[in-house]
Design a protein around this nucleic acid. Structure first.
Length: 622
DNA sequence: CTAGGGTTAG
């Protein structure tokens, strides 16, 4: 019987009858399916499958292929399509159930996989060794309380005789780790009769996910055969823990051990370079990529763009971007953010428009980047209208980060009342970042009344306000010359163990990182550095500037003095800081750039400062 | 079938 079905009406009624024959043309259809790359084509092929009438025997390859294709496609539309195909099958066999369960496990609605499993059990369809890894992947993807589900599936793994299956065990390790039960994960690991490399790597990843870097190291060191995944898991673990130097060291160890990095390893390492501001090391890796002819995928490309931008080399960032074959939203965002941190708001806006002209839609992160750009560049009106456009034009609901950007933007522009109104009208509860931004604005614009009012409200209502926030309050009391209040707030900070992060300024010379911490004299050339600083000090005094005691304890001065010693005249000095640059250091650096005719590029925790001829690119607003 | 990925900003 020939069934004529339009592509858009693919769903067979349950009463339809179909021939179960497999014939030569099914092979043809199969090859079509293999080449098929989008849903439209797929629907057309599907319609043909219907016409030929051999689609609904679960044992035919075309229908399995069809289902597998729909289930593995990333969008939810094709998964819905797969569900309809699945529903049209009379009594699906285990393989078919696994396919649709896998589809949901990898989707945004993994709970559907578990519902399907319940139906599978009700229909008495037996599980096989593939069923449990998919189900456990679904458990790992659950947004809330994955633990209960994981435990239940674990019980089934044992009950149905897969307790010694290494694939199921490895998946259990992962699922328990994601649920925060690292001890359970370890127990599963210990009981595997024949552990494979995935077992070990999953265990390392599990410890990292649970914040136990030390245990991860221990497992890693205990491995005899490490593959690229073992190394990369550790490298990205270090990056996630902010231990970027360790990450970079491990990358080199990996290469020394003869394991070749792949794209994932390179991405994590490039990210470490970006955090460190390690331009030379980053360039090295880029050269390695070119020499080995490694394909720059969208993520690797974005990582490179981001690295060059964060290391201060925007020209190269754009060069990499231009050469990228497929420029996704991440690559565009990396460029926009690059201009943001270099204080080039206009340029950021230009690229933001350019991105949309080439048909790429901005996402939440792009908006954080562009709103921050407006904030840094003092473009309040542009920022406000972009913020309003988020929901109206782009259908993106602003998150607390975007509100944070806006409070910062309004605050910098001196629009304190508007900033306060925005906070009051926010649909989410303001966090310490939001209040911190407003307090900082009160401090900058000397609106002490509002600052004190908010600060006191915070202390009363929110006992765990962060130190970051309360520091501004202490400053505000200082400006208001209310010394006993200042002392009181500072004492509270000590009580809450809010300690300021130690300032560190680093400079890279010939591929070696030199780190300077205020008051630390451990650098081998410390005598020379101090001599240099004394000379600088004298020159500054001649220019009419009197360095205060604060600057004598500053880590920037050590790095700059060292940079002046170690580089030839005319060479730009590049410094990376782990904190915001303080006002005094900023003033002094401007002056040094003029007196010594040196460009100094300083990256603080938030952005770049380009010092040249006594001026800074941030326009003294940061 | 199971393990490792970048872009906000703090």
């Amino acid at each position: 019987m020939e069934v004529k079905v339009m592509a858009s009406h693919f769903l067979p009624s349950p009463t339809s009858q179909f021939s179960f024959e497999t014939n030569a043309s099914s092979t043809q259809t199969l090859s079509l399916l293999n080449r098929c790359s989008n849903m439209e084509e797929l629907k057309q092929i599907h319609a043909q499958v219907f016409k030929k009438g051999y689609a609904f025997d679960d044992n035919t390859l075309p229908v399995r292929k069809l289902l597998a294709f729909c289930s593995s496609a990333p969008d939810s539309g094709s998964l819905a399509y797969a569900q309809k195909v699945f529903d049209g099958i009379d009594s699906p066999i285990t393989f078919t159930w696994n396919t649709i369960i896998r589809g949901y496990a990898n989707s945004t609605q993994p709970e559907q996989a578990l519902f399907l499993y319940r139906r599978m059990l009700a229909d008495s369809v037996p599980q096989n060794a593939y069923t449990f890894p998919f189900l456990l992947k679904a458990c790992s993807g659950l947004s809330s309380s994955p633990l209960e589900e994981t435990k239940q599936i674990h019980a089934h793994v044992v009950k149905f005789g897969f307790g010694f299956d290494v694939f199921s065990a490895n998946s259990l390790i992962h699922a328990y780790a994601v649920s925060g039960r690292i001890k359970s994960a370890r127990l599963v690991f210990e009981r595997i009769p024949q552990r494979d490399i995935v077992s070990w790597n999953s265990m390392i990843d599990g410890y990292i996910k649970c914040g136990e870097m030390g245990m991860a190291c221990e497992i890693f060191k205990g491995m005899t055969d490490k593959n690229v995944v073992s190394w990369t898991t550790m490298i990205s673990g270090y990056v996630g823990a902010g231990m970027n130097k360790e990450a970079l060291n491990l990358y080199h160890e990996m290469q020394d051990s003869g394991v070749k990095p792949d794209n994932v390893a390179l991405i994590s390492t490039i990210s470490a370079c970006a955090h460190l501001g390690a331009l030379e090391q980053g360039k090295w890796i880029h050269t390695y990529i070119k020499r080995r002819g490694i394909k720059i995928d969208p993520i690797l490309g974005s990582a490179l763009v981001d690295m060059y931008a964060k290391c201060g080399d925007m020209e190269e960032a754009i060069e990499v971007f231009r050469r990228m074959e497929k420029k996704g939203v991440s690559a565009w965002t990396a460029v926009v953010f690059g201009f943001t941190i270099h204080g080039q708001g206009r340029e950021a806006l230009k690229w933001f428009s350019g991105m949309q002209e080439s048909g790429v839609k901005p996402n939440m992160i792009t908006f954080t980047a562009i709103l921050t750009a407006c904030s840094y560049a003092g473009m309040a009106d542009e920022g406000k209208s972009l913020f309003e456009s988020m929901e109206k034009e782009y259908n993106l609901k602003p998150t607390i980060e975007h509100y944070g950007c806006m409070v910062d933007l309004l605050g910098r522009a001196g629009l304190l009342k508007e900033a306060k109104q925005l906070i009051d009208s926010m649909p989410v509860r303001p966090n310490s970042v939001i209040w911190g931004a407003l307090l900082k604005a009160c401090q900058i614009h000397r609106n002490l009344e509002l600052g004190k009012q908010i600060g006191e409200m915070l202390i009363e209502s929110d006992p765990d306000h962060s130190g970051h926030c309360i520091l501004h309050l202490a400053n505000i009391y200082g400006i208001a010359e209310e010394w006993d209040k200042t002392v009181e707030v500072r004492r509270q900070m000590t009580d809450q163990k809010v300690c300021k992060l130690q300032g560190c300024s680093s400079i890279s010379l010939n591929g070696i990182f030199h780190e300077f911490v205020a008051g630390d004299r451990s650098h081998p050339q410390m005598d020379k550095i101090n001599n240099m600083w004394n000379r600088i000090s004298k020159r500054l005094k001649q220019e009419g500037y009197k360095p205060t005691t604060a600057i004598h304890q500053n880590s920037d001065k050590l790095a700059i003095a060292f940079g002046l010693i170690g580089t030839k005249p005319g060479v730009t000095i590049r410094i990376i800081k782990n904190l915001r640059v303080c006002e005094e250091s900023h003033t002094v650096t401007k002056l040094i750039s003029k007196v010594y005719s040196r460009e100094i590029v300083m990256r603080d925790i938030a952005r770049f400062h380009h010092f040249k001829n006594g001026k800074c690119s941030c326009g003294d607003c940061w």
